[in-house]
């Protein structure tokens, strides 16, 4: 493989890996605080794409602003889903929350079919993302280059929120011990809303970059990325943010590398993800960064 192609593949793999990481974080932080697998997370990811699509399609607002507004709307959607769908079940047996999450996922998918239509739509994005830049003789599509950069900035922002703000402190405390956090004066409802907001915001950023990479969207577009990101979170150790990042990066990066080095195996790339899952869980059942409770 020529060096320039290798660099392209590395960037491509890093980008996909980081996209999975952004989505996986949403699963892991919600699980960390509520012990709930939010099956609707992949569909929140899908909704973010449609928010940008309709914003850019129906209004004269510039694309960049549409993208920012869509992130805001997705955060609102995530917070609302928790408020309406999950909060009334707080304290109920865990299986009730699980059912609610699966139901919410079906609801969002079918809502999208009815309102947006089931036929795939071309996702519009600024031409600049398609521009080929040449760095040191290597040709790279702008989006391939921008994706990892935006993801890393988002992760730095997340790190700041979690480790330097009061709400982040509340989140980390509540994820260990709900009751003690409450007795310290932490407002649990606010903290849970904050958590859903962060998870949904990261999913929205991931979704927009995803749609610019693979520019066709439909109501089920979130299903497979969602499952893989969830798998990534489990590989990393569900509940651990670093684990979600590592797991996401691992499966994204190695999927691209597998296809690059063994094109004949590309049909098995999804199988490959789940092989990583099985091997990880066999060797370390709590996941890479997970701890026993």
């Amino acid at each position: 493989m020529p060096f320039s192609l290798f660099v392209q593949n590395v960037l491509n793999g890093a980008g996909l890996g980081l996209l999975y990481a952004l989505v996986a974080i949403g699963y892991t932080i919600v699980y960390g605080i509520l012990r709930l697998i939010n099956f609707a997370h992949g569909d929140i990811f899908m909704m973010a794409m449609f928010f940008v699509y309709y914003g850019a399609f129906l209004t004269p607002i510039p694309w960049g602003i549409c993208a920012v507004l869509a992130i805001g709307l997705t955060i609102l959607l995530g917070v609302t889903i928790e408020r309406v769908g999950y909060r009334p079940l707080r304290g109920a047996p865990r299986v009730s929350g699980l059912c609610a999450a699966i139901g919410m996922s079906f609801f969002l998918e079918n809502f999208a079919i009815v309102v947006f239509g089931g036929r795939p739509k071309p996702f519009l994005y600024p031409d600049v993302l398609d521009k080929v830049v040449i760095i040191a003789g290597i040709h790279i599509r702008a989006i391939t280059f921008i994706t990892p950069v935006v993801c890393v900035v988002a992760l730095l922002g997340l790190n700041y929120l979690i480790h330097r703000t009061k709400m982040g402190l509340a989140m980390r405390a509540a994820s260990r011990d709900f009751d003690t956090a409450r007795v310290m004066g932490v407002d649990i409802n606010k903290t849970v809303s904050f958590t859903f907001g962060i998870g949904s915001g990261l999913a929205a950023i991931g979704a927009i970059l995803w749609a610019a990479r693979y520019p066709q969207i439909h109501p089920f577009i979130g299903v497979f990325p969602g499952w893989k990101a969830f798998t990534a979170a489990v590989i990393g150790g569900i509940g651990s943010i670093n684990g979600a990042i590592a797991g996401g990066f691992l499966i994204g990066f190695f999927t691209i590398m597998l296809v690059a080095f063994f094109p004949s195996l590309s049909g098995y790339k999804d199988v490959f993800v789940f092989v990583i899952l099985i091997v990880t869980l066999l060797l370390k059942p709590t996941g890479l960064f997970g701890e026993l409770e």
Partner: peptide, 19 residues
């Protein structure tokens, strides 16, 4: 006691002053 094991001592104190 219910110290938050994942938070530093300083953060444990900070959460006491959360309000």
């Amino acid at each position: 006691r219910k110290i938050f094991p994942n938070l530093t001592v300083r953060e444990n104190l900070a959460i006491g002053a959360f309000q």
